[in-house]
Design a binder for these strands. Structure first.
Length: 414
RNA sequence: CGGGAGAUGUCGGAGCGGUUGAACGUGCCGGUCUUGAAAACCGGUGUAGGGGAACCUACCGGGGGUUCGAAUCCCCCUCUCCCGGCCA
């Protein structure tokens, strides 16, 4: 949730910022109007209500003193009707404002470059040189088939398209990766959590998936529950509606969860192979931080994800997302893209974002700064997407005969 | 899924329908005392919105109702706990 007071006071600046994210002026204009009309409706209701409260108090003392109350009662009765009307109006104004405000994306940070889409993202660095193959490297699905690692057909049979089954060494490798990631994150100070894979609507609103992106989620019929699209949802919302002490910050958390996505808008994209599935494993980092230290934590999280890729000896590049490519909740995002020799391109394997206080406002996560309560900053990032790491290992560690090597750091986990 | 109990501030736990935003304890902050700490004692401490301020409004799980007035009475929902069934 953006800061509506800020919007009101610095309207032009806010419009400017949100244009980077493709929000229309009209929407913000409307938001400003709704905010003003809520204030009006509220103060009118509150002052009238104050009057009624006064009279009701008076009524009490009249009764005690044995005075006649019929005149007083008549007065209050006439107020009551007016109040209920004013209250309805105030509530409507609040609901209208709230509905619209929840659909406004976060302000991009000043560091975010201008740009319309992923083509305008800025490469910051490349880490490790892609290895030269003296044969034509295969794509992961070929290797998967050859090694009996991934059973796409039976995944589809069990569920539907975009589901798959890992078998044998692939399943073991998946498990090894999860352990390796969790252990690495833990050694960097992240507490490991094991959380529910179903979260209720209020949590999904807290992190920004709802109300706008309901179509991207799997919902449980007859229950107010959704399969989580990322561990960011449960990990961030661990502190939903809580007030932390400054001493506790920063809180660094990591967790492994499967992630579930409808992929509603991506028909036809990455249909082959395991790049884009309805269910995939991911190890996530989440930080709840003091506003002053979130920039440093952001850098640390990017570095951590990159270090993990380096430890696996996987070539990758670091990319700063431009305004047009930023997600709804993000103020700033850096993607790590791993080199896939079979596809001959870099593909996203980790995405680290800071949301500033955007999610904290929605999820009401605050901390005591002296006497005052302030919103924390929340950050999240993958370290790493497990399925895509598996693919990267397959393509980067393939040998001419189609067999696949295992990264050294994983040996002790297999 | 069946039977019983409950939901109040950081936590524990009071609360005749009006001076209760909420006793008391605890926690936290400040002070006295102490070589230091503990203990003891004194003071301060909920959240959100509005207003320059005094102050006003809302909140005792959520929603509705009764009433001049509801944490307190009535109805619905949700959740939690205990007993039983089922079950990893």
């Amino acid at each position: 949730m953006i800061d509506l007071k800020y919007l009101q006071k610095n309207f032009d600046e806010a419009v400017d910022k949100l244009q980077k994210k493709g929000v229309k002026n009209d929407t913000l204009e409307e938001l400003k109007l709704l905010f003003a009309s809520l204030k009006d409706a509220n103060s009118l209701y509150e002052s009238t209500k104050a009057e009624q409260n006064q009279l009701s108090k008076l009524f009490g003392s009249y009764k005690r003193e044995g005075k006649d109350t019929t005149e007083l009662k008549a007065k209050v009765d006439s107020l009551k009707e007016e109040i209920s009307l004013l209250q309805d109006r105030a509530r409507e104004a609040e609901a209208a404002l709230n509905d619209l405000a929840l659909t406004i994306p976060n302000f991009p940070s000043d560091k975010v470059p201008e740009g319309a889409d992923e083509n305008d993202n800025v490469e910051i660095s490349k880490v490790l040189e892609p290895k030269k193959f003296d044969f034509e490297p295969k794509e992961h699905w070929e290797l998967a088939q050859q090694n009996g690692w991934i059973d796409f057909e039976r995944g589809v049979k069990l569920a539907k398209s975009r589901f798959s089954v890992l078998r044998g060494d692939a399943a073991r490798l998946e498990r090894a990766l999860i352990n390796f990631f969790l252990e690495t994150n833990r050694s960097k100070g992240f507490e490991e959590l094991c959380v529910p894979f179903l979260n209720n609507s209020s949590m999904l609103q807290g992190t920004g998936q709802l109300p706008k992106f309901e179509d991207d989620l799997f919902k449980i019929e007859d229950e107010n529950l959704y399969l989580i699209p990322t561990a960011e949802v449960p990990l961030t919302n661990i502190y939903n509606d809580e007030i932390l002490t400054a001493k506790e910050l920063p809180i660094l958390m990591t967790g492994y969860t499967p992630c579930f996505r409808r992929e509603a808008g991506s028909a036809g994209r990455d249909t082959r192979g395991m790049i884009r599935q309805h269910q995939f494993d991911k190890v996530e980092m989440v930080a709840i931080s003091h506003p002053d230290s979130s920039d440093d934590i952001f850098d640390m999280m990017v570095q951590n994800a990159s270090d993990i890729l380096s430890a696996l000896e996987l070539p990758h590049r670091v990319v700063e997302l431009c305004g047009g490519d930023l997600g709804f909740s993000a103020a700033r995002t850096i993607d790590l893209e791993v080199w896939l020799p079979g596809q001959n391109q870099y593909r996203e394997i980790s995405s680290v974002s800071t949301t500033g206080d955007f999610q904290a406002r929605r999820a009401k996560i605050r901390f005591k700064d002296g006497k005052k309560n302030r919103f924390v900053h929340t950050l999240n990032g993958s370290a790493l997407a497990v399925g895509r790491t598996l693919i990267a290992i397959m393509e980067n560690y393939q040998r001419e005969d189609g067999t696949i090597g295992i990264p050294k750091v994983l040996e002790r986990y297999m």
